[in-house]
Design a protein around this nucleic acid. Sequence first.
DNA 1: TCGCCCCTCCAAAGCGCTTTGGGTTGCGGC
DNA 2: GCCGCAACCCAAAGCGCTTTGGAGGGGCGA
Lengths: 345, 345
Amino acid sequence: MNLRQLADSLGLSMTTVSRALNGYPEVREETRARVLAAAKAANYTPNARARRLATGRAMTIGHVVPLTGREETVNPIFADFLAGAGEIYAREGYDLLLSMVGAEETATTYRNLAATGSVDGVMVQSPRIVDDRIPLLQELKIPFLVHGRTGEYTTYSWFDVANIRAFRRATDFLLDLGHRRIALINGQETLDFAARRRKGVEDALQERGLPSRPEWMHQGVMTEQYGYTTTHAMLAMDPAPTAILCSSIIPAMGARRAIAEAGLTLGRDVSVICHDDALSYLGNDALTSPQGPPFTATRSPIRAAGRRCAEMLIALIREPDQPPLQELWETELTVGRSTGPAPAT
Amino acid sequence: MNLRQLADSLGLSMTTVSRALNGYPEVREETRARVLAAAKAANYTPNARARRLATGRAMTIGHVVPLTGREETVNPIFADFLAGAGEIYAREGYDLLLSMVGAEETATTYRNLAATGSVDGVMVQSPRIVDDRIPLLQELKIPFLVHGRTGEYTTYSWFDVANIRAFRRATDFLLDLGHRRIALINGQETLDFAARRRKGVEDALQERGLPSRPEWMHQGVMTEQYGYTTTHAMLAMDPAPTAILCSSIIPAMGARRAIAEAGLTLGRDVSVICHDDALSYLGNDALTSPQGPPFTATRSPIRAAGRRCAEMLIALIREPDQPPLQELWETELTVGRSTGPAPAT
DNA sequence: TCGCCCCTCCAAAGCGCTTTGGGTTGCGGC
DNA sequence: GCCGCAACCCAAAGCGCTTTGGAGGGGCGA
């Protein structure tokens, strides 16, 4: 069933039927009702391909998720981010076009999406400290929103969490507990968010006149194994750190494993704070444990971020000539069972 | 730059240019070369929207990922599965349309995708024991591949791993180690794969004349917390199980946490076997640990499954009238450090 | 030289929708 | 009775591509 057949069956023109269905005012309410009833009865849905061509809008948003590292690891936050964004897209009638490619191919991918016109806008994730995707997308004149930020960030739209403040606060929290030997297990510091987090840690240390010791400042792809091996190695040092900051709950779980394996107790012998994106299958809430959540964490639900990013991007698509939208969310420090006063030694 | 402009600039018709670009034989090689050179110089890429309308093919594949549980948890395997599938789609020129919706809305979503013609085929994931999506898609006459299987599974195309055999084998492994008190932390048993895994466990127990004790057979959404709370509760029982099978590495990590917290040693006091989908950020390989991988596991890389599923689905799209494709992969039992002989008691 | 065929290329007709630019009709005001 | 204006509705022109059904011209055999 297509528009022409529906129009013929109603004895109306395609124009009128189209207008009736799309809510235009030039059609009598009685006629509109007839059309809607017939469309429903015939189970008619406009062909999206034709509509996209006719309107020039793809009603589709592209997410290009970069795979990182040799193993092409998928950043685990991305599933929940997508779930959040997808909620909004579905509500607003947008489709989601997903493309997962190695970091080197992302530029080509964006270029292609723009050239073929298969999307109305794109989401940019995990920006690097220097990231050519942003000038590229500006050149391509395609609406985009950056989740995170980098470089000269007054010229484009972004959504970010206050990474420096979050990690500064977390470090202060450890310092206040008496910790002086503080380590960082960070994401890859070519990524902007990781660089910021490191700065937060260093700022806090510096303010108290403490050096940041290179042998305790680690960066890498944030897997569980990475957290494990790094912690394992650091615990063998003399002196060993008494507290560890982790850039994500996943390496934090690896750290926990290494600590347990070394016969130490988390939150007593070694403290751990991580950033918690509130991943749905790695919950860190207190629900099930009356003593509080397992990890002390800087918390910022990634799913909510996905929702907000989607809203902002859609706003940009609808009103392309507005000034850049920028939004910075604070994180929340939730105290859990993974931190405690620095051991006496 | 569109096709007409390119054709005009070359002094050729749109027909010829189109044919030259798409590799049709009715064009002289010299002309084709000229066209290709001009297209490249002008940075011409055909408009995908127009092409989709003209060809009637969407060159897009839909993935409808069901969110499960009250928290609308995203199954963690889905990111790596998508990464695998996306690799193949990119290679074959297909786009990936992603839709994440609650389990109740999946039917509507499929119906919509079919009606609007925005996809050429769809991937069905996490089939339930009775799943109305399969008859629905058959009725809609849209090519689909089921990742997993259910019901009368001769009539449609699917890809699955041998879940019964995998968990039967894992249970036998524990039994051979002397364990007699064996627990299962399973996924939701309305899902077909979870039901099969349970059957595998029960078959193995039954063969040795052992009962499967309901208080040790658990099912739920496979989060880390779920593994933790379930294990925590079981360890407080008298007698407590000496071995636990987990349906995924994520609850297994929760189990490990509960075991450590109870002052017990994994692989000595309590053994754990899990199914390992080889998630990229939760690696279980031996690379970094000479004593072997952390968990003994039935292993089946989900990313490879994604690749294979994509290949099969594309084959179905290209040749819709062929008999159903069906493929069953075996899992591999990798022995790690989480299992050991049953304790003496 | 003629006729046929093959090699190249082209005009035009879609694909199924939206949207522009009118046409008709009916009614109130003068 | 005529004009102007809403209120409704329509025909047709796209959107940018693919594809059908030729058309023209050169080479070859008769």
